[in-house]
């Protein structure tokens, strides 16, 4: 069976989804179920003191017994903040050590600050975390992050939440060719074909949030993304035909034409 293996654990789905920006927890649950994802990202935030404690929580909608939670460091701009956030996440999730590290560079582009990211990754790996790392599509940085022990390299396709698709498939290809741990496109996917292209390139998985949550019908888009990732993976495994530039090749027999 074709499985995605991250840090020694196998997953059947190659689609990872975020849980932000949904209308409510019920829509989150329906979309995640339709996506078939087994790994879901969550953010760590201050609890709302004074709010009715009986209000439903994300954990009720998506029980941690059923999904692999991937706590992220969204909103962190320094290695220090990211590390602090993930240590809290590990405590919160009873010692769970698979995490998504992202250290951002500025609030307009949400582009990763790769030097802070590398610094945080080194410390987190030494502290026993299994780090899946969000980064730019720079092959050298990807390699350095792999060398410090990250368990998955997650380059952006384009800016977080932009839906602009894969801006630099050539860089992604270099990263895929040179990195041994799973390469997961994270951020920028806008629609199903973007996810398929990522998988056809040879990415091991795709992580997305806004492409699903921001669709007119998020649950239907989640289902589309599931198929898109599967289709791209199968096409990659099947091995596409060679491109013949400016040279047609008939699909039907050339002989036996009537009147010949």
């Amino acid at each position: 069976m074709d499985q995605l293996v991250i840090a020694g654990k196998a997953y059947g789905s190659r689609l990872l989804v975020g849980t932000g920006k949904y209308k409510d927890f019920e829509q989150t649950r329906q979309a995640v179920e339709a996506s078939g994802a087994e790994i879901v990202t969550v953010a760590i935030r201050r609890t709302n003191i004074g709010q009715d404690p009986k209000q439903p929580s994300l954990l009720d909608a998506l029980p941690p017994s059923k999904f692999t939670y991937l706590p992220n460091t969204a909103g962190c701009y320094t290695a220090e903040d990211a590390i602090r956030t993930l240590r809290l996440a590990r405590e919160l999730l009873d010692g769970h050590d698979l995490v998504k590290l992202e250290v951002l560079g500025d609030p307009d582009t949400l582009y990763p600050n790769v030097s802070e990211t590398l610094k945080a990754a080194e410390i987190l790996v030494k502290d026993g975390f299994k780090v899946m790392v969000y980064t730019s599509d720079d092959p050298i940085m990807a390699k350095q992050l792999e060398e410090v022990g990250c368990v998955a390299i997650m380059p952006l396709a384009s800016l977080i939440g932009s839906g602009m698709g894969i801006l630099n498939p050539w860089n992604l290809q270099i990263i895929i060719d040179r990195i041994q741990v799973p390469v997961i496109v994270d951020a920028g996917v806008g629609t199903a074909s973007d996810a398929t292209i990522a998988m056809e390139l040879g990415c091991d998985a795709v992580l997305m949030n806004t492409a699903i949550a921001g669709a007119q019908n998020p649950v239907l888009m989640a289902s589309a993304m599931k198929k898109a990732v599967e289709a791209g993976r199968e096409a990659y495994l099947a091995g596409r035909m060679p491109k013949k530039v400016y040279q047609a090749s008939p699909s039907s027999p050339t002989g036996g034409m009537i009147g010949s």
Partner: peptide, 10 residues
């Protein structure tokens, strides 16, 4: 004191 929980995020 900081008290944190898991919330929806990407």
């Amino acid at each position: 004191l900081e008290i944190v929980v898991a919330v929806g995020g990407g």
